[in-house]
Design a protein around this nucleic acid. Structure first.
Lengths: 233, 233
DNA sequence: GTAATAGTGTCTATGAGACAATATCCG
DNA sequence: CGGATATTGTCTCATAGACACTATTAC
């Protein structure tokens, strides 16, 4: 019951980033090593406080993407994941965090000092299984981010955000297999993707050196929602 | 670039509620008439500031559900919708709002003073079309809430949250038709829902007076995610 | 009986999944 | 040529959607 001179309480706002990408062994999430208390030295998601009172929240997310992950120039997929504001989640006081999900194409190690247990790309599995311990409630945020990505692969063209500008259908299939953790039939996948109007559009005639027949190149099409959806086995 | 004595800025936190239900003419959203500036007298979503610094955000949402909507006792579906924190959205300063989506079963007029243009259940259509004007960015929040509900009807058992404890299959169908704004074939709907294991379970043998053959009664089953999903036409 | 709604049966078109077959590269 | 991957073709099964039909109430 507000009294006459009641003033609403003010909270500290942070953004946290779940940045996903694909590397050799599959789905990875970018972790940094905290340089300041609390949880100094522990692994955590990139992120930080709102820079100033007038900063837009998504702008703050993009700023942290640049500052903490070195992913400033690129225009990667970024979407809001949710708010994590449980009292007591941060010893510095009432800190409410807005989590964002970012998806980056394959790229070289972005952060410095990637020693075995330090900052860098960790497999999603190692984080979700608890093999790697994160500060705050960041493990839960990663879990929510991975689940969001898995769900959006079904109904949106998010998978193309894991790929470079142009890509082959097999590369796109690897995205689905890595994020979902399943195997898909290349032949059925091929047709399914092609028949989904506007999902991918042909680019160059073909590419590829490695081995076997060269594959055609595609790029992301105009469609962002998929009808019918890709089905998770 | 943080300087040595830099202090993170503090923001004011509010919760806003998109409370959906079904009434005669279809999908409705609960709006209140603002009693204080800014936008005094205008229609807006129920909501308000965090009560005190230690209040959990979802708890604040439930508190507002009780205080502003008179829906305290009931245990309705409540899920986080997202954060709306654009600078300038609220003239009182930097106000960041966490929006929640609530779904209520059919119930009598909950709030007082339901005059034509005042507080009460407004059709979702009138809000989305702009026929009814809302304060702040609340129209966008309603749009996001409705779209969330539409999407979740496909893949979750959210539809049962629009129904009473027990319901008939036709009543469940009315939920889908109202939220999606489409017509469905009762016969195919009937089988589809029945074949989705765990979605609904039989309750009483039958009920219903109105007209025609009495319908069997069901209640929500244990399953919350639907495989395969209900498909939006 | 008729009107009305509940519930069942059946047919068809479409898409998913299995998998054979062909194409095109490397060596 | 053989090995590898890309791409196409075909078959089968499950399901969505259309819709005839039966069942059970009120009048």
């Amino acid at each position: 019951m507000p009294i006459d001179d009641w003033e609403p309480p003010a909270v500290l706002l942070t953004v946290d980033l779940v940045i996903l990408t694909l590397r050799e062994a599959g789905l990875r999430v970018l972790l940094i090593e905290r340089g300041v208390p609390p949880h100094q030295g522990a692994l955590a998601l990139p992120g930080g406080f709102l820079g100033h009172l007038g900063e837009d929240i998504e702008a703050a997310a993009r700023r942290e993407l640049a500052e903490e992950a070195g992913l400033g120039d690129r225009s990667l997929h970024l979407e809001q994941l949710g708010v994590y504001g449980e009292p007591g989640r941060d010893p510095r006081g009432r800190v409410v965090s807005v989590a964002y999900l970012a998806v980056a194409p394959r790229l070289p190690d972005p952060v410095a000092g990637t020693d075995a247990s330090g900052a860098g790309w960790h497999t999603a599995e190692s984080v979700l299984s608890g093999e790697v311990t994160l500060a705050f409630d960041h493990r839960r945020i990663v879990a929510d981010g991975v689940e969001r990505a898995r769900a959006k692969l079904e109904h949106s063209s998010l998978a193309t955000a894991f790929c470079a500008e142009t890509f082959t259908i097999s590369e796109l299939q690897e995205v689905y297999e890595a994020v979902w953790g399943t195997r898909l039939d290349p032949r059925n996948f091929y047709r399914k993707v092609q028949r989904t109007e506007g999902f991918i559009v042909a680019d160059g005639p073909s590419r590829r050196t490695e081995n076997g027949r060269p594959a055609r190149l595609f790029r992301a099409g105009p469609r962002t929602v998929l009808h019918p959806p890709m089905v998770r086995p």
